[in-house]
Simulated scan of single mutants.
Amino acid sequence: MKAILCSQYCQPDDLVLADVPDPVAAPGEAVIAIKAAALNFFDILMIQGKYQIKPPFPFSPAAEVAGVIESVGDGVTDLKVGDRVVASCGHNGARDKIALPANSIVKIPDNLDYDRAAGIIIIYGTALHALEDRASPKPGETLAVLGAAGGTGLAACELGKLMGLKVIACASSDEKLEFAKQHGAELTLNYAKEDLKEGLRKLTGGKGADIVFDPVGGAYAEAALRSTAWEGRFLVIGFAAGDIPKIPLNLALLKGCDIRGVFWGAWARLNPDKNRKNLEKLVQWTAEGKISSHVDRTFPLSQTAEALKVLAGRKAMGKVILHPGS
């Protein structure tokens, strides 16, 4: 089978399309013939050796897959050949097939296409965990979402609206903000044109945002924290801007606010049953049209480098999907 391989830390253009042996389902596992594999910003960091998780070489990027069960190992009773499924794999999704523990695989309904299914797990799983488990939300509170047109930001906009929050989309272009408005945002702020701190204060009548969802980091993080309301919650999601900010802790004191870390991957490993229920709920919501799992564009497996560069350039509005077998 074909696989995109990272054999040493490298840039996207250095990845290689190679032949590797087909996987075999061990006891308790199932092999998925992958129809769609979703990319995330951390895939770029992983191949560069800058991510906290460092798989052994050689490995493939892409941590989310959707496809069809091709075979099952001994002891697997709740999956059968031909089932349409989705799963989180951490890495190695950019290939034709993958063997995974059966208990990590979730069936998807016939009316949910593989591309949208592949894009659900990480961005919506992260956003749901952030808002439901970490943010302590109350209906009617304001939620400011940085990077609102990116994958995780867009998921936060949609889920925030579903939770009854007043969503303020913050992004770097009017095009991205208009897109976020189509996906749950009520108010918008272009932080390329307007000061983020002052803009959020103005949009909240001087109070500040109750919840800040920040997958961007860099120079925007401190400004966003300064714009939080009294007893606000600042959610640390990631650092798409590249720089990890150093936050003056006196801000947390002066605002009586919380800075709360959101590490969905670790939480999912520690809470597998709750994470599986979350994923099943998100799959159902997507099939019902309550959330979009919007796909920005798709690429054949051979163009994985180009797909990653779309993410690196922050050009994607929604998910970037690979199509193995093409």
Rank of each mutant, 00 (worst) to 15 (best):
A3Q: 14
A3Y: 03
A3W: 02
I4W: 00
Q11N: 10
Q11A: 10
P12N: 05
D19S: 14
D19G: 11
V20S: 07
D22P: 15
V24T: 14
E29I: 02
E29T: 14
V31S: 13
A38D: 01
L39R: 01
F42L: 04
D43Y: 05
Q48A: 12
G49L: 03
K54A: 12
P61K: 01
P61C: 03
A63L: 07
E64W: 01
V65M: 02
I69N: 05
G73Q: 09
G73H: 04
V81Y: 01
V81G: 09
D83N: 07
R84P: 13
V85P: 07
H91V: 05
H91N: 08
G93D: 03
A99L: 03
K107R: 13
A118R: 06
G125Y: 05
L128V: 08
A130H: 09
L131K: 00
D133V: 14
P139W: 00
L146N: 11
A148P: 00
A149S: 15
A156H: 01
G160I: 09
G160M: 07
G164V: 15
L165W: 10
D174W: 00
H183P: 15
G184P: 11
A185C: 05
A185V: 08
N190F: 00
E194F: 09
D195I: 10
L196C: 04
G199V: 04
G205F: 09
V212G: 04
F213D: 03
A219T: 13
E222Q: 13
A224P: 10
R226F: 09
W230E: 13
I237Q: 09
I237C: 04
A241G: 14
I244T: 12
K246R: 15
A252P: 14
L253H: 07
D258T: 13
V262R: 08
G265Q: 08
G265R: 05
G265V: 09
G265C: 07
W267I: 06
R269E: 08
L270S: 08
L270I: 06
D273V: 11
D273W: 01
V283F: 00
F299D: 06
Q303L: 01
K309T: 15
L311P: 01
A312S: 12
K315A: 15
H323M: 07
P324K: 15
